[in-house]
Computed example of a mutant assay.
Amino acid sequence: MGMMVAPYREIREAVHSVSNTLTGRQWITLSGSDITRLLNITREDIQQFGALWSDLRLDHYMADGGCYRYRRYGQFSLDPDTLEKHQLPHEPYFQPGYINTLNGEIKRAFEPLTAEFALHHVLDRLIRFMAEVCNGASGKKVPWNVRLHPYRIVATEDSHGMPTPEGLHRDGVTFISSVMIRRHNIQGGVTTITDASQTHLADVQLTQPFDLMLANDETTMHSVSPISMANSELNTAYRDVLVIAFTQP
């Protein structure tokens, strides 16, 4: 039996509802089952898209000396009317020190996104859906700058993996999202969301493929707790996530 596809009206209603919630409380979560149904993401899509996380590269810029983070990086411009994305020339990633107290003030030359990743239809659907939600929360069509950060955080028997080694932070963008791709043999990885004054708002754990957290980065802060290996008899333990940042030019 094939996966049920959400009708267009249901997708529009979902965008409207999620946008209103994002406007009201500044952050939202959606289950992976809702995302995959709304966007017609099949089990095969989940496997194919998730397999791309095995081709990330070690982050050599960790000021804490950690060797637990693998990633790539790329950015796109988004047509405000058609929501088509256009990949921008690859360049180093930079954050000011007041935004990233651990790795800020450095031009970090990460490996670019692979063509297979950048052109994947699952990525197109995710970006379009989230852009519409962000447009709804913004009250207008925005020519978003979209930055993509596929991450793999690794834990070993001897060491934890740190999804947010900089601690509670914001990313210096307009909206920030985390999409769960896969949790393999790990414990931990709980997302904490606060307001701009660091008053606690919620603790969220993304567990299933395509579980989503989306927040207004200008009014909230976030962190993710360390991960540890759940079963030391298995050889690997990791947390695969796609971070998508939307910035209004």
Rank of each mutant, 00 (worst) to 15 (best):
Asn231Lys: 12
Thr29Pro: 09
Ala137Ser: 12
Lys107Leu: 14
Gly139Met: 01
Phe246Ser: 04
Arg147Ile: 08
Ser177Thr: 04
Thr114Tyr: 06
Ala118Asp: 09
Glu91Cys: 12
Thr36His: 01
Arg9Asp: 12
Glu116Asn: 13
Phe49Asn: 05
Tyr61Glu: 07
Val243Gly: 07
Gln248Gly: 11
Trp53Ala: 04
Phe210His: 07
Phe246Ala: 07
Leu113Ile: 11
Ala115His: 10
Arg147Thr: 14
Leu206Glu: 06
Thr247Lys: 04
Val173Lys: 02
Lys85Asp: 09
Val15Pro: 05
Ala118Asn: 04
Arg125Cys: 13
Ala245Tyr: 04
Asp211Pro: 11
Val154Ala: 05
Asp79Val: 00
Ala109Val: 13
Gly167Gln: 06
Ala202Lys: 12
Gln26Pro: 02
Asp55Pro: 00
Arg239Glu: 01
Ser225Lys: 08
Phe49Val: 02
Ala202Gln: 14
Pro249Asn: 12
Arg71Gln: 09
Asp81Pro: 04
Glu91Leu: 03
Asp34Lys: 12
Gly24Trp: 08
Asp34Trp: 06
Ile176Ala: 14
Ile181Pro: 05
Gly104Val: 11
Lys141Glu: 09
Gly139Pro: 08
Ser33Thr: 11
Gly32Val: 13
Thr174Ala: 00
Leu123Ser: 08
Ala63Ile: 08
Ser178Ala: 15
Leu206Val: 08
Thr42Ser: 15
Gly161Val: 09
Arg125Ser: 12
Met1Glu: 15
Cys134Tyr: 02
Cys67His: 15
Asp59Glu: 00
Met229Phe: 04
Ala6Lys: 01
Thr164Leu: 06
His120Trp: 08
Gly136Cys: 10
Ala196Lys: 14
Ala137Arg: 03
Ala230Arg: 11
Ile193Gly: 02
Ile127Lys: 05
Leu119Phe: 12
Thr199Asp: 13
Thr29Ala: 13
Leu113Asp: 03
Gln87Asp: 02
Ala51Cys: 10
Leu22Ile: 06
Thr194Met: 01
Ser77Glu: 07
Leu52Asp: 00
Arg125Pro: 04
Leu168Ser: 09
Trp27Asn: 02
Ile106Tyr: 09
Met62Leu: 13
Ile127Ala: 00
Val190Glu: 06
Asn135Trp: 04
Arg72Gly: 01
Gln95Val: 10
Val173Met: 06
Ser33Pro: 02
Ser54Ala: 12
Ala196Gly: 13
Glu44His: 14
Glu116Phe: 09
Arg43Ile: 09
Ile153Pro: 05
Ala131Ser: 14
Glu105Pro: 08
Gly139Ile: 11
Trp27Glu: 05
Val241Glu: 06
Arg125Gly: 11
Met130His: 02
Val133Gly: 04
Met229Val: 02
Tyr70His: 08
Asp195Tyr: 02
Glu166Pro: 06
Trp27Ile: 05
Leu58Tyr: 02
Asp34Met: 11
Ile106Thr: 15
Asp34Ala: 14
Trp27Arg: 07
Ile35Asn: 03
Gly2Asn: 15
Leu102Phe: 15
His86Arg: 14
Pro80Met: 03
Lys140Gly: 00
Ala137Ile: 02
Ala63Tyr: 11
Pro163Gln: 10
Ile46Trp: 01
Thr192Gly: 09
Cys67Arg: 15
Leu83Met: 10
